[in-house]
């Protein structure tokens, strides 16, 4: 019985045992750092049109361009250095993924816990709406909303949130419903504590484990959904390409041997999503009491 064994420490001790998950976590952190410091680590600012030269467009990896440095991964049709474009693209993808993830988490959790705690008609109304929405494919919903709202970062995040909050609401509802029946909630209600205190201090903290799991998976999903929308040309403006748009930009040249324009951003996207999912899987396994030793 050591005073140091907080739940978080125990959690990390167990996480550390899965070497693959630790590696994936390192990859995720590394990619987030690359995205954060994109302007420092990139050889070129791909958004500054003054830097771009059409002379350098669609050059293969290893080409030394007019800037005087080597384009390690080649250049895209606008003459951007692909490596720099990937770093900047990562930044946008992660930004949008995180923003959409957290907004969905907040809205979904609020609705789910409200439904579970209040019950009655409010519960029925919220959960039927959530069920209805879960019966549509997320991509379809996002497409319709982007088509209605137009292009732009905020609009895109809005579309992703609308497509994803329902997953959080379902999860939060299920967890809160299960926790609500437990003695410690009854003890808090019996004190009596106000509903606000019961929900914020007891119910919400105990619903977090499944929400964290869904959040990691949904952030990965947001990123891939954003990439899909951008690929379809419904994402962000062409001047600030995300990973999806980089892939889309290179797509017409795939068959003409200029594979790198699509492939390298694609690889970056896959690494990011797979790494997040491996971390998410490990977190889920650790929270699942049935898989515990």
């Amino acid at each position: 019985m050591s005073g140091q064994s907080t739940p978080l420490r125990l959690f990390w001790a167990e996480f550390r045992e899965n070497k693959v998950a630790v590696f994936a976590l390192v990859v995720v952190v590394l990619m987030i750092l690359l995205a954060l410091f994109a302007s420092v680590v990139s050889p070129q600012n791909p958004y500054d049109l003054a830097n771009l030269s059409l002379m350098d467009s669609r050059r293969p990896p290893g080409f030394v361009g007019s800037g005087g440095y080597t384009h390690i991964l080649g250049t895209d049709p606008q003459g951007r250095d692909l490596l720099s474009a990937i770093f900047y693209g990562l930044r946008i993808s992660i930004q949008i993924g995180l923003a959409a993830g957290f907004v969905s988490l907040t809205i979904g959790t609020t609705l789910g816990i409200l439904a579970a705690y209040v019950g009655g008609r409010i519960e029925a109304l919220i959960m039927r709406l959530v069920d209805l929405q879960l019966s549509f494919p997320a991509i379809l919903l996002a497409l319709v909303i982007v088509a209605l709202l137009g292009q732009g970062k905020a609009q895109l995040i809005g579309a992703l949130v609308a497509a994803q909050y329902a997953y959080f609401a379902r999860t939060a509802y299920g967890a809160a419903k299960a926790e609500r029946g437990k003695d410690y909630i009854e003890a808090a209600v019996a004190t009596p504590l106000s509903a606000r205190l019961v929900v914020l201090r007891h119910l919400l903290p105990n619903c977090t484990p499944p929400l964290i799991v869904v959040a990691t998976v949904q952030i990965a999903n947001s990123i891939s959904l954003e990439a899909t929308l951008s690929f379809l040309g419904l994402g962000l403006p062409v001047t600030e390409p995300s990973l999806g748009m980089l892939i889309s930009n290179g797509f017409p040249y795939m068959m003409s041997g200029r594979y790198w324009i699509s492939v390298y951003p694609g690889v970056a996207l896959i690494i990011l999503i797979v790494a997040i999912n491996i971390v998410g899987d490990q977190v889920r396994d650790q929270f699942n009491p049935r898989l515990r030793r």
Partner: peptide
């Protein structure tokens, strides 16, 4: 409930304490 004058001790102390508090 409108009073604090009655309090309860539950059966299972493993369930009646908030594990995260």
């Amino acid at each position: 409930k409108v009073t604090t004058r009655v309090q309860t001790v539950f059966q299972d102390p493993f369930a009646s304490l908030d594990p995260r508090m």
